[in-house]
Amino acid sequence: MANKVIVETNINGDPVELLCEPRQSLLEVLRDVLELTGSKEGCLTGDCGACTVVIDGRPVCSCLMLGVEATGKKITTIEGLAAGASLHVLQQKFLENASLQCGICTPGFLMSAKALLDRNPNPTEAEIRYSLAGNLCRCTGYDKIVRAVTDAAAAMAGRGRPAHGTVPSETASGMAGEMLAKGEVK
């Protein structure tokens, strides 16, 4: 059954009118209808983050959203990150830090990192790790990714490369967890 509908949205700064089936996820629409294949299909359950795009400033798993829900939204995909041949500083820092091996997770990591830096240009390492926690990488061990985002934030702020090497201690979850960690309650 192909009851296709028209969706008017904005992708990477351009108004887009597209035709899709209501059952198609945004990820399917991006990849199969618009041939924007930079967003990757990983788990299809919202666990791995490989399909992350930024919608109205927030990171979203495009596999867990219908294409029709994109109506009226502003979407940034990995294809919108570089300006022509000029890489985004995040992409540049991922290359410099060798923050990828197989590369499948990289577009998702870059979009989560972009959503973070757009909101918080000077994140702590803990904030970077928290913001990237919805993206899984089975190759790098994450440290090089965290370094790249730290470097990108520093470069965007016109600072030099900061010292590295601190890994935050394990903490319990949430605000109550923070109180536990600080020893405010037993």
């Binding site: 919202g46 990171p59 867990l64 926690a133 919805g134 993206n135 605000m175 109550a176």
Partner: peptide
């Protein structure tokens, strides 16, 4: 409502919490 807020903020990743 800090308890309800922390429960909402524990669900999944930021990608999930955005939706």
């Amino acid at each position: 409502y800090p308890g309800l807020t922390e429960a909402a903020h524990l669900i999944g990743s930021l990608q999930i919490q955005s939706r």
